Simulated assay, not measured.
Amino acid sequence: MWRSIASNALTLFIVVLVALAGAIAWGKRQYVAEGPLDQAICLRVPSGSTMRGVSDDLAGQGAITNPSIFRIGADYTEKSQQLKAGAFLVDEGSSMQEIVDIITRGGASTCGTEVVYRIGVNRALMQVRELDPTTQSYVETAEFQPGPEGEEGDAIPEGYTKVRADANTRYRILVAEGTTVWRVVESLKGADFITGSVEADEMPSEGMLAPDSYEVREGADVDDLIARMVALQQQRIDTVWATRVDGLPFDTPEEMLTMASIIEKETGVAEERRKVASVFENRLKRGMKLQTDPTVIYGVTNGVGVLGRGLRQSELQSNSPYNTYVIEGMPPGPIANPGLEALQAAVDPDETPYLFFVADGTGGHAFAETLAEHNANVAKWREIEAQRASQ
C-alpha cells in the first residue's frame, strides 16, 4: 500500500514538474513573443510609478497580453527596481521583454511633449510640439514669441503653461546658422526653463557659438549651455581646419572662421556655399576687395540687433574696419556664428572663375566671371525688384 502511495505521489510530482516546466516555457515564449500592439503608443511613466501600475496601464492600452507575465519577466531579469520616469515610444508589435528594456534603460524620454526654443537671426520662437507615435513625427500645438527681461512678447498659450508643469516635458534649444553671439545670449533670456545669465564681460567671442540643436534639462544653467556651444564650435574649427585644401588665401583657423561667417551671411542656399566661397577667395587671391554688405552691416550694428534698412552711402564709404568696400582683405573677425557647412565651404571652395554674384530672384544667386556679365545680372535683379514693388 505504502509502495503504491509513494508511486502515485512520485507520478503526481513528476506531472506537476512537467506542468510547471511547461508553464515556465509558455511564459518565456509569451514574454519574448511579438506583442499585440497594432500601432505605436506613447507610454507615460510618472515619477513614483510601480511595475504593477505600468503593467496594468500597458494591458489597458492593449500593449501586453498578461500583466503577471510582464512583472515576472521584469523580476526574473532583475529590472523591477530599475523603472524610470518619462515618456517612452513603444513600437507596434513590441514584446514584453522589449518594453521592459525601454522603461528601465534610462536616458532621455523618446516621445511625448517637447518644448523647442528656436533662436533665429532676427527673433526667437517658443514652440510646443507633441510626437504622434503612429507617424513618429511631431505635431505643433502652440507657438509664441517670448519677451526677454520683461519686454512685451506674445501672450503665453495655456498649453505652454500646462506642459511646463509636466515633469515629463523635454526641452531643446535650436540655434540657427548666421546668428550673432549677442542674438543668442539675448534670446536665451526668454527661455524660462533655464537659469542664470551671461554678463557683458563674459560674452564669448563672435562666431564661437555653434549653431545646432541642444537638449537641456529644466533648470539647466545658461553658462553650462554656452560652454557646450563654444566647445562644439571649437571642435568643429579644429576638425575642419585639418581638412583644408592647399592654396587658400588665409593662414589661420581664426581667418577661416571669419570667412565662414561671411559665406553664412551671404547665402541661405546650402548648395551655393562652396560657390560663394570661391568668389570671395578668388577676389582675395587677385587682391580685390571683398565688397560684401553683411560685413558693413556688422560694422554699423556691432552685431547687436538688426539694421532693418538698407545701407547708406555714408556707411558704404566709412572707415569702419568691417567696411570691405574700403579695406583690403578680410575684416578683423567673424560677423556671425557660422555652421559646419559654411566652415567646410571656407576650406574647400568650388573651383570656379567667378568674381561676382547677385541675387537672382529665386532665393539663390547669379554668378559672373566678368564685370559686364555681373552688371547684366544686376540689371535683371533690379527689374525683378521693380516688378515686386509694383505688385
Rank of each mutant, 00 (worst) to 15 (best):
W2Y: 13
R3N: 01
S4C: 04
F13N: 10
I14P: 08
G22E: 06
G22Q: 09
I24W: 06
K28P: 00
R29W: 12
Y31F: 14
Y31T: 06
Y31Q: 00
I41M: 01
R44K: 14
R44D: 13
M51D: 01
L58N: 04
L58A: 02
G60Q: 11
G62P: 03
I64A: 08
P67I: 10
I69M: 00
F70E: 01
R71F: 06
I72N: 01
G73N: 03
F88D: 10
F88T: 11
F88H: 05
V90I: 15
E92Y: 03
G93E: 02
V100P: 04
R105E: 15
A108W: 11
S109C: 08
C111M: 04
C111W: 07
V115G: 07
I119Y: 10
I119W: 10
I119G: 05
G120S: 08
V121P: 00
Q127T: 14
Q127S: 11
V128Q: 13
A142W: 11
A142N: 08
Q145E: 04
P146I: 13
G147I: 05
P148V: 09
E152M: 11
E152L: 11
D154P: 03
G159W: 13
A165K: 12
A167L: 06
N168A: 08
Y171P: 02
V181E: 13
R183H: 01
S187D: 04
S187K: 10
L188Y: 14
L188F: 11
L188A: 10
G196A: 05
E199A: 15
E202N: 15
G207C: 14
M208D: 08
L209E: 00
S213W: 10
Y214S: 06
Y214M: 04
E215P: 00
V216F: 14
V216P: 07
E218L: 04
D221L: 10
D223E: 13
A227S: 15
V230F: 01
Q234A: 11
I237K: 02
A242D: 09
A242R: 15
A242S: 15
D246C: 07
D246T: 11
F250Y: 13
F250V: 03
D251R: 02
E254C: 01
L257T: 09
M259Q: 02
E271Q: 11
R273Q: 06
R273E: 03
V276S: 10
A277G: 02
F280K: 07
F280A: 10
E281C: 04
R286H: 12
R286M: 13
R286D: 14
G287T: 05
L290G: 05
T292Q: 10
T292G: 10
T295E: 00
V296G: 13
V296A: 14
I297T: 13
G299K: 07
T301C: 02
G305I: 14
G308C: 08
G310Q: 14
E315M: 09
E315F: 03
L316F: 05
Q317I: 01
N319F: 01
S320H: 01
Y322R: 00
N323P: 05
I327Q: 02
I327A: 02
P334L: 12
N337F: 10
N337H: 12
L340W: 08
L343H: 11
Q344C: 03
A346M: 07
P349F: 00
D350N: 12
E351H: 06
E351D: 12
P353G: 13
F357Q: 12
G364Q: 07
F367D: 09
T370P: 08
L371S: 09
A372G: 02
E373D: 15
W381K: 07
W381Q: 13
R382Y: 07
E383K: 07
E385D: 03
A389Y: 04
